[in-house]
Each structure stands twice: as C-alpha cells, then as structure tokens.
C-alpha cells in the first residue's frame, strides 16, 4: 500500500473509508412467448410442456428453446401432474424471501410425460422420509389464488403409489454416467446421440449405436 501525502487541510480529520451508493433500476420484465404460453396453462391448472418436433424432448417449464436441438419449441403437450422424485435436498437455511418453515424439501421432480425434472417443494411428509423414486402429485393453491406463476402449485405431496425403483437419475441410464472414464478411456461426443444428425448414442436413444 503506497504512502499517501495529504494536503494540510485533510491531515487531522477522520478519513472516509467507505461510501454507500444506493442504486435502483426499474425494468419492465416481459415473459416472452414460451413462458407466457406455459403460464397461461397454469392459470387453468394445466401443466403444459413444449417440444420442438413430435419426436423431440418435452420441456417443462419451457424456456423458448430446446437446448439440445437449438430450436424453438412450438408444440404444446400437456403433461401429468404426478411424477417421480429424481433427487432432492433438505433445506435448513432460511433463504432470502422464502418464508418457508425449515426444514423443508426441495426436489427435482420428473413429471410423467416430461423429459426434464422441475425443481419444486415436497410437503405433507416428514423431510427425513423423502426418497429418490418417490411418486408425488401437485397440490394447487385455492382457485381464487391461482396466478400465472409456478408457485400456484403450492408443493408436491406423496401419492402413496409404490416408489419407482427404475427412476432415472440424469445420465445414469448408461450405468456410470455420461462424463465418466471407463477403463481409463475418456468418453467422446459419441456417448450421446446428436439430436440433429442422429449420430452417436445407443440404439435405445434412437441413434445409430
């Protein structure tokens, strides 16, 4: 730290070391096409996913692009309001703005008919009894409180069905995960099916194998 030479007038006063510079910026956020269409479904208590082509993955909530194809997702597909917990965590930290009683469970839930898990809350079961593979269903707010937000689903709760023992943790269907080195050999791009060219992956993926 270099030595600072001050003018005489500032030598005997308490120096300023920090300063508050509050700043507020006001934006008008617009949801865009995919999100608006999805949320209008929510106001009718429907969970509507989107896909790029009839063969491609169903995304919920849709965000405007199929990230594997790099294409818009114009096709709407209603998915089920029940699904399977693919993973979860138990939160003991009072999170800013959450207003949740701790502990609570935040889970990745793969809805039947969807190809990507959504993150949502699990309630109506003690946190230490939540399991990977557990079947859960959506619990909506009262009709009067339904708004265009995923929070109109208050949480998910167990359906009481038997657990899905074959639940797919992302990437696990290949046993060891996509990014693992087996026998010291690195994976290549061909581990997965390229959704545009059909090259790579296994026959189960619809790829060339």
């Amino acid at each position: 730290m270099p030595e600072i030479q001050l003018p005489a007038s500032l030598r005997d006063v308490e120096p300023v070391r920090s300063v508050r510079t509050p700043a507020q910026l006001d934006y008008t956020f617009t949801a865009g096409d995919a999100t608006s269409r999805f949320l209008r479904g929510i106001t009718q208590k429907k969970i509507i996913g989107q896909q790029a082509t009839p063969q491609s993955k169903v995304y919920v909530p849709p965000r405007g692009a199929d990230p594997e194809l790099g294409a818009a997702t114009p096709i709407e597909v209603e998915v089920a309001q029940v699904g399977t917990v693919t993973s979860f965590c138990v939160v003991n930290l009072q999170f800013y703005g959450s207003g949740m009683e701790i502990p609570y469970t935040s889970a990745l839930i793969l809805l039947d008919g969807a190809d990507l898990s959504i993150m949502h809350l699990i309630q109506e079961i003690p946190a230490d009894q939540v399991r990977i593979g557990m079947r859960v269903e959506a619990v909506w707010r009262d009709d009067a409180d339904i708004e265009p937000t995923l929070e109109s689903i208050k949480w998910f709760r167990p359906t009481g069905e038997p657990d899905d023992v074959n639940v797919r943790i992302p990437g696990e269907k290949r046993g060891t995960g996509l990014g693992s080195w087996v026998g010291g050999v690195a994976p290549t791009e061909l581990v997965v099916r390229n959704p545009r060219t059909g090259v790579g992956g296994t026959e189960a993926d619809g790829g060339e194998g």
Partner: peptide, 12 residues
C-alpha cells in the same frame, strides 16, 4: 447462459 440454448450446445 439461457441464450446459449439457442445454439443447441449438445453434444457439448
């Protein structure tokens, strides 16, 4: 991060 989805970075 989300606009990268428009490219379709898959495989990586």
């Amino acid at each position: 991060v989300s606009t990268l989805d428009g490219v379709g970075p898959w495989p990586p």
